[in-house]
């Protein structure tokens, strides 16, 4: 589904965020990308849909080369990749429905989108997704009236209505409380399974990643240093990724609830 070869990103000023990364994600697999801040997680998924232009290397999604294509071809490629953001990145002054339908912008022409004339099939699909995400009846609320969890659900609907082959998910739970975080992760896992989507999920919370995914990739200073199932992620491995820390120690359970 997703094939990355030799992906390298050097920012102006010489910071090497990604250093020749090779990665394959098959259809139907939810993959968590972990690593300390600044390891290049965010850069990696933004290089896949070229919101950040890679310096070298290739990205292929669903048989289409993403790197090296022109503006028009890039737009077509982006339609096949849904993206979900840390701070939701909803357009706050638009309604929930407009936000969800904005995921179809790559499919409709400019004037139709300007007049909000989306095909009936898109509208049907939007209602189906809102139902599925537990947002029934919310379509006419403005995005800035929603709670964090609700916003992220709208963000998920917006990504899925693109009918993507691949989901790029950037810290989906970083701004949410623990309970909502789990609900959002569960929703993502279920939706990926239902639609057999490939997904890369950047995530800080290693425990949460372990709970929900089949495969974890560890990134450190722009290089992949771990790639395997959650069970293989030992304390030694965590030290390799994040640096020295007492991984066995955990806070008392009472604190864990309120954390």
């Amino acid at each position: 589904m997703l094939t990355i070869r030799g992906l390298t990103k050097t920012y102006r000023g010489g910071d090497r965020a990604l250093d020749s990364v090779d990665l394959d994600v098959p259809a139907g697999q939810l993959m968590a990308l972990i690593g300390p801040s600044g390891a290049g997680k965010s850069t990696l998924i933004r290089c896949v849909n070229r919101l950040v232009e890679p310096t070298a290397g290739s990205v292929e999604v669903d048989g289409t080369m993403v790197t090296g294509s022109g503006t028009g071809a890039l737009r077509l490629a982006r339609r096949r990749m849904g993206m979900i953001f840390q701070e939701y990145a909803l357009v706050e002054r638009l309604s929930v429905m407009e936000n969800v339908l904005s995921g179809r912008l790559g499919y409709v022409g400019f004037w139709a989108s300007w007049l909000r004339r989306f095909p009936q099939t898109d509208v049907d699909e939007a209602f189906r997704l809102l139902d599925r995400a537990g947002l029934t009846g919310m379509q006419d609320k403005r995005a800035d009236q929603l709670s964090g969890g609700q916003r992220q659900r709208v963000g998920i609907c917006r990504a899925l209505i693109q009918n993507p082959a691949l989901l790029l998910v950037d810290e989906p739970t970083a701004s949410l409380d623990p309970k909502t975080s789990r609900q959002i992760m569960r929703l993502l896992v279920e939706l990926c399974a239902e639609r057999s989507l490939a997904a890369i999920v950047n995530i800080h919370d290693v425990a949460l990643a372990r709970m929900f995914v089949q495969r974890i990739v560890g990134l450190r200073a722009g290089r992949i240093v771990f790639d395997g199932p959650p069970e293989a992620l030992t304390d030694a491995m965590l030290t390799e990724i994040y640096g020295e820390e007492d991984w066995a120690a955990s806070a008392p359970p009472a604190d864990d609830e309120t954390a």
């Binding site: 339609r79 953001f85 909803l90 499919y107």
Partner: peptide, 13 residues
């Protein structure tokens, strides 16, 4: 900019 990025990521012109 995040809102712009999100719309751009959906393949919008």
């Amino acid at each position: 900019e995040a809102q712009v990025e999100a719309i751009r990521a959906s393949g919008a012109s």
